[in-house]
């Protein structure tokens, strides 16, 4: 009897494997370390991340600790600021190509963006100028990022993005809910979680309740991908999203505890992390950023920010760029 069940089980496994062939193993991820100071790994939960590609540094905005810490490319803290209360409730940080640092603070329904020098010394509080009416009310950015010469102010709840210069002068904006055709109710009940800007200036974001990731070009063309499920490459509760120089897209799944890799044509390539308590595992990953071949993942359970190196052994079959 045991053999019968065993045979049935093996057959089932075989059929399952045949029914969903694994993608070519073009990617491999290796856990490197967790962002640390001299006392060891820092037990962050769900912090905001930014990278300074010029200086190979990683910035962590910690709302609970009301500070911004800077880490070198070995994952060691080299500097911190904001813990004197200068910024209030720090929500997010962005680093311009010039080395200037922008800090977003929030208090209830108000926000402030402070421009700092490379040492984190506050230089100016941005006075938002020229904001259209739709960005003047009910627009409270909860994250920021920098691309090109623009600061992206993102209100993930209303799904609006305002682009300003370093002084806070409005240049353009995206009403992503409208662009996607969402109703007001859909926007209020969904909203974005992950958000980033790729090398082409495209907006990447996730809407977990739709089990989807989206790419919106500066010309407002929209592409999306994602399919609900719990098997590799499927979306359960997706969160952070970012891309690398080759156009590969990394998507965190908070529920499945993985980071998925898709090529620029949205074909699933590989995933890594997986729920568990080993150093290389993930627990409820949320935000992520990519710097060259390194992927930084913020997670829960006071497990801090895990850093992985992703190796791409050859271009994916559908990739049209990079190599």
């Amino acid at each position: 009897m045991y053999k019968i069940y065993r045979g049935m089980l093996l057959s089932l496994i075989f059929l399952t494997a045949m029914a969903s062939p694994a993608p070519a193993a073009l990617f491999r991820a290796a856990y490197l370390y967790t962002l640390s100071d001299f006392n060891g790994a820092i037990p962050y939960n769900w912090v905001n991340l930014a990278v300074d590609r010029r200086d190979e540094e990683t910035y962590v905005a910690d709302p609970a600790g009301r500070s911004v810490r800077v880490f070198n490319d070995s994952g060691m803290e080299v500097y911190r600021f904001g813990d004197n209360g200068d910024f209030g409730n720090i929500t997010a940080v962005a680093v311009a190509d010039s080395g200037e640092i922008f800090v977003l603070s929030r208090s209830n329904a108000s926000y402030a963006v402070t421009r700092c020098d490379y040492r984190g010394e506050p230089k100016a509080r941005l006075a938002m100028k020229g904001l259209p009416p739709e960005y003047a009310t009910d627009f409270v950015p909860d994250t920021i990022c920098w691309h090109g010469d623009r600061l992206y102010l993102v209100d993930r709840n209303t799904m609006k993005v305002a682009l300003t210069d370093r002084e806070g002068s409005f240049g353009s904006g995206y009403d992503l809910g409208t662009i996607l055709g969402f109703s007001k109710k859909q926007i209020s009940e969904s909203g974005m979680v992950g958000f980033s800007v790729d090398n082409e200036g495209d907006l990447l974001f996730t809407v977990p309740v739709f089990f989807s990731a989206y790419l919106v070009t500066p010309g407002h063309q929209v592409r999306s991908f994602g399919m609900r499920g719990s098997t590799p490459g499927k979306f359960n509760i997706v969160s952070g999203i970012a891309s690398d120089e080759r156009g590969n897209i990394y998507v965190a799944d908070t529920l499945r505890c993985v980071v998925m890799i898709f090529d620029r044509d949205f074909s699933f390539q590989a995933e890594f992390g997986f729920r568990g308590l080993e150093p290389g595992n993930l627990i409820a990953p949320m935000e992520l950023v990519v710097n060259h071949d390194r992927v930084y993942v913020a997670q829960s359970r006071a497990r801090g920010v895990s850093v992985y190196r992703v190796f791409q052994t050859q271009p994916s079959a559908t990739s049209t760029k990079g190599g």
Binding site: I179, L180, G181, F182, Q186, E189, S190, V209, F210, F211, S212, Y214, H220, Q221, V222, R223, S224, F225, G226, M227, G233, K234, F262, D265, F266, S267, F268
Partner: peptide, 25 residues
């Protein structure tokens, strides 16, 4: 996964396909 969806004019289709996502339970 070949799930890429061109969406400029087809946003509605995506929403229809996932319209029940709000009420998870």
């Amino acid at each position: 996964m070949k799930a890429a969806k061109s969406l400029t004019a087809a946003a509605v289709l995506t929403l229809l396909a996932s319209g029940s996502a709000f009420a998870y339970h």
